[in-house]
Amino acid sequence: MLDRSNRANNRERNLLAKTSFMKHLSPAALESLLDSAQIISLPARSIIFREGESATAIYCLLAGYARLYRMGKDGRQADFRICTPGEVFAECLVFGGTHYPYSAQAAENVSLARLDAKDVRDLAERDPTVAKAMIAALSEHLIVTTETLVNDRLHTAPQRVADYLLERCPVDSGSASIRLPFQKNLLAGMLGLAPEALSRAFSSLKRAGVSVRGRVIQISDVKALREM
């Protein structure tokens, strides 16, 4: 039984209703998921679930960032996705699998909506809008994963960093300033780099006029960076 103190309040229900996963659901399905959502707040570095644990829920991130990663036999961690507010994760378990295939950790203070996986599965069998929303979420994540894999194969570390900056650059020429939304170690994980490899990449981009101060990235010549 869901603790009523953990039910979504009006603000949280509005946030959930606007997510890409829920915004196209039928009114009945949306109301059902909003009513059943359990809101959880966790401090930075908290484990949301661990690889190999029984998969009982999917999650929608309302605030903060979460990292998804796999653990190697030598204990090293490999990030493969950084989740941002409005995104769902672990949705792949709704239609198959009984254990989480990766771990999830709060990268900073987070607010999450927890949805019981069985409840979502049962609802998807009755309401096609839920099934379509799940397929759309899975398709989006597959596309992103494919692009990440291709970038890892075809681009050097400096090129990956440059591409990330250019995608978020507000101008096509001249100088620009970009503030990272999270710490650089999360950016490293997002780009498939070790933290030290990210530092070397930024150092190599200095010749293109890129300088780093904390989370603020200064680009003296956007066009030069684009032509690297």
Rank of each mutant, 00 (worst) to 15 (best):
K184P: 01
L193H: 01
K206C: 07
V161W: 12
D163V: 01
G174V: 09
Q159M: 11
L180F: 03
Q183K: 14
V161L: 15
R168T: 00
D152G: 13
L191I: 01
S177P: 00
R153T: 06
A176Y: 07
V150K: 10
V171T: 14
R207D: 05
V150D: 10
P181N: 10
Q159G: 01
L180W: 00
Q183L: 08
L187G: 02
L165E: 03
P170L: 02
S173W: 05
L198H: 08
V150P: 00
G189P: 03
Q159A: 13
G209K: 06
L154I: 15
P181Q: 02
L187R: 11
R179D: 11
P158R: 06
D163K: 10
A208T: 00
N151W: 09
P158A: 12
L193P: 07
F182T: 06
G192D: 09
R153Y: 10
I178V: 14
A208G: 02
R179Q: 13
K184R: 15
R153M: 11
G209H: 02
L187T: 04
R153C: 07
L187C: 09
A176V: 07
V161G: 12
D163W: 02
Q159K: 13
A201D: 08
L165W: 05
A157Q: 14
S173P: 06
V171C: 10
A162C: 14
A201L: 11
S175Y: 09
A208W: 08
L193K: 02
Y164E: 05
T156W: 08
A188P: 04
I178C: 02
V161A: 12
S204K: 07
L205W: 00
L198T: 07
I178G: 07
G189I: 07
Q159C: 00
F202I: 02
G174W: 13
I178P: 06
R200M: 03
R207I: 12
V161Y: 14
L187K: 11
K206A: 10
P170H: 07
R179K: 14
A208S: 11
N151F: 11
A162L: 15
L154Q: 12
G189C: 08
R200Y: 03
C169S: 15
S175M: 04
A194Q: 15
T148S: 14
L205F: 05
L186I: 03
R160H: 12
D152S: 15
A197D: 02
A194C: 03
R153K: 11
P158N: 10
H155Q: 15
D172E: 15
L166C: 07
F182P: 01
N151L: 12
L165C: 09
Q183R: 14
A194S: 09
G192I: 05
H155C: 10
A194T: 04
S199H: 08
Q183D: 13
E196C: 02
L191C: 04
R153H: 09
R207P: 03
A162V: 07
A188C: 03
L165V: 04
A188H: 01
A162M: 04
E196L: 01
G209Y: 05
A208E: 11
G209R: 04
R200N: 06
S173H: 13
L191P: 00
D172C: 01
Y164P: 03
R207S: 10
V150W: 00
S173V: 06
P158E: 14
L180G: 08
A201F: 01
R160N: 10
A194L: 09
S175H: 13
L165H: 11
L165Q: 04
S203N: 11
C169G: 12
C169M: 08
Y164L: 08
